[in-house]
Amino acid sequence: MSGHGKAMKLTLHVWRQKNAATKGAFVTYDAPDISPDMSFLEMLDVVNERLILQGEDPISFDHDCREGICGTCGVVVNGQAHGPRGATTACQLHMRSFKDGDVLTIEPWRATAFPVIKDLAVNRKSLDRIIAAGGFISVPTGSAVDGNAVLVPKVKADLAMDAAACIGCGACVAACPNGSAMLFTAAKVSHLGLLPQGQPERSRRVLAMVATMDAEGFGTCTNHGECEAVCPKQIDLGFIARLNRDYLVASLTTRGQEKSSGGSG
């Protein structure tokens, strides 16, 4: 049994940036007395409490649920989005993944589509706009048929759920050497495209979402696979292939007037 490991002493190089308009730089902090039971964010809390008492501006970082589901947190630790553990979010990364004396470089998600707000916090509204373009099924409240009227084979439902598990954290974009949001977009396109309920809008959805993804300034996918490797929900790269296929089919089969921009109707 562990749970009472020895305190560690770490050195942090943290990216500090006042706001999107000013240039940032690394600042070095000591983090003595770090318990291996702390989560990564709790470690930052401890550093911040000390900074505040010394009258220094605490490090800003986004977080909310701290249980790996809301997708708010996310920092790059030693060049890896959400840190070294894999299949985890920064809030669920524990300090026992590091050892005494380690030097950690902590940076924000870096992508043009994710401008820095302050320090480690970035603006990810671009992801919401991709959803607003078509990541939905148009079914106004009250118009639904009985839940069991449309059968969904279990395998399909399970695969759709695999895709739907995406928490929208943006680590895929952060890790992709091209700053591409393909894994995020693929997850939503696949989730809805796999279900019978999602069929009527399938073509329009994929065309509109990809158009918005491009317009938001994300990069293109050259199949590096980094996104899948850092994705806390282990969203499969296969969904990107599915997105490509859907996009190709939709482009070949959709006529101009059918694909009027997302959102409408």
């Binding site: 079914v139 399970d158 759709a160």
Partner: peptide
Amino acid sequence: DQCAAQGVP
């Protein structure tokens, strides 16, 4: 019904 129609898996 509503949620199933929205694509909740």
